[in-house]
């Protein structure tokens, strides 16, 4: 009885926009399941872990402690780890959102068929974002496990930081989708890689932003990753501040803007 009611409810939900967004996401789950995605996942997860080990512990051994804005002193590994979590939360959704989406949209023309169904271009974009977000969540979860194992975070801190990691994924997933709609060939991804890597190096990742000269600080302040790191670092190092609300809002706006603009550009490409 209960299952029957539930089935009807779910059935009704299935033919709503939410149901269709979920259906688009499930397509990717089905494809990942049959393609042997594990290898890619492991590589994506390992990258920030290796950075954490080499920078946090390797370089950290020579650097010693870092003094935070509020005067607290933390080990260099503790300082770098939340930034690596942010980078990890960024990488998955961004590259899935850009490269993965580009290949589906332009190379394999997958969505030409999708939009012949009730699914709209916005739902395609949202479903793809949800999928890349799911991937980001897996990366983040895995990275959090490593942090707990290395004694760089407690379970409570990890639970608090996971929503922030998702938010970072949302922002960069949306951004990735948007950039993918501007890309014309595989070569253009080199530029994306370069942008992301410079952002990764200079968003307060390895040094406090205060160490940069004034104008550079403004540029850093504009990057979404900086705000993401502010969030993860604040939550993991128990250095909460009101400005973190602004950081979160910035990420939400970036994600929504990316999603909205991307879906408009997708509609223009698919629905000529």
């Amino acid at each position: 009885m209960v299952t029957a009611v539930l089935a009807t409810r779910l059935g009704r939900l299935a033919s709503t926009p939410a149901g269709r967004i979920w259906a688009v996401c499930l397509r990717d789950v089905t494809a990942a399941h049959s393609v042997g995605y594990t290898f890619l996942l492991v590589v994506g997860f390992l990258e920030p872990v290796l950075y954490l080990l080499s920078m946090g512990f390797g370089v950290g051994g020579m650097v010693g402690e870092v003094v935070l804005a509020d005067g607290a002193r933390v080990s260099y590994a503790s300082f770098v780890a939340p930034a690596m979590l942010a980078a990890s939360a960024m990488n998955g959704p961004f590259f899935e959102g850009s490269i993965g989406f580009f290949s589906k949209m332009r190379y394999r023309k997958l969505f030409d068929a999708t939009i012949s169904t009730p699914v709209t271009p916005f739902e395609v974009a949202a479903g793809e974002l949800l999928w890349s977000l799911g991937q980001g969540a897996m990366y983040s979860l895995a990275f959090c496990t490593v942090m707990v194992a290395l004694g760089l975070a407690t379970l409570g801190q990890v639970l608090a930081v996971l929503p922030a990691a998702l938010l970072i994924g949302f922002a960069f997933g949306g951004l990735g989708l948007l950039l993918a709609t501007f890309i014309n060939s595989w070569k253009d991804f080199d530029y994306l890689g370069a942008i992301i890597f410079s952002m990764f190096l200079f968003s307060g990742t390895f040094t406090p932003v205060e160490a940069y000269p004034g104008p550079a600080q403004i540029i850093v302040w504009l990057t979404p990753l900086y705000h993401g790191i502010e969030l993860t670092r604040g939550l993991i190092l128990d250095a909460l501040s009101l400005s973190m609300l602004a950081d979160a809002a910035y990420l939400v706006v970036v994600g929504l803007l990316g999603l909205w603009l991307a879906s408009r550009r997708i509609a223009r490409t698919l629905c000529r």
Partner: peptide
């Protein structure tokens, strides 16, 4: 996707159980 998956995935876009 496989032949069957192609149909089942497509059906989902229509909200077919």
């Amino acid at each position: 996707l496989t032949v069957l998956e192609n149909l089942v995935v497509y059906a989902r876009y229509f909200g077919i159980p």
